[in-house]
């Protein structure tokens, strides 16, 4: 079977990243104009979800890496 290796080319990875950054930017812009239907006042702040998503993920990774992993990491034969 023929191998697919589109992501071996740095150019393609760059395109993908550009799409991601572009998508983020476009969503922020659209957010200003789109009608907002909300339950809570903070949902009407432009970019609330964007900020929350970003902060949540960074917090998640840092907490998991620096706190949780220190507590729970063991060698693979720990239970053997």
């Amino acid at each position: 079977m023929k191998e697919i290796n589109i992501f071996d080319k740095p150019r393609n990875v760059k395109i993908l990243l550009t799409l991601l950054f572009g998508g983020c930017l476009a969503l922020l812009i659209v957010n200003f104009f789109a009608p907002k239907h909300s339950h809570f006042p903070w949902e009407e702040w432009s970019g609330f979800y964007a900020a929350y998503g970003f902060v949540a993920c960074v917090t998640l990774v840092l907490a998991a890496k620096h706190i949780l992993r220190r507590i729970v990491k063991r060698s693979e034969d720990y239970y053997d």
Binding site: L17, L20, F21, G23, C24, L27, L28, N31, G47, Y49, A50, A51, Y52, G53, F54, A56, C57, V58, V61, L62, A64, K65, L68, R69, V72, K73, R74, S75, E76, Y78, Y79
Partner: peptide, 28 residues
């Protein structure tokens, strides 16, 4: 927005080398 910026966070952490590397280990 939530998803794209989560993906952005992942990309950022990965490119910056902050994302925890997978380690051969188990977690209790």
């Amino acid at each position: 927005q939530l998803l794209f910026f989560s993906a952005l966070a992942f990309t950022f952490l990965l490119l910056a080398g902050i994302y925890p590397a997978e380690i051969r280990a188990i977690n209790i």
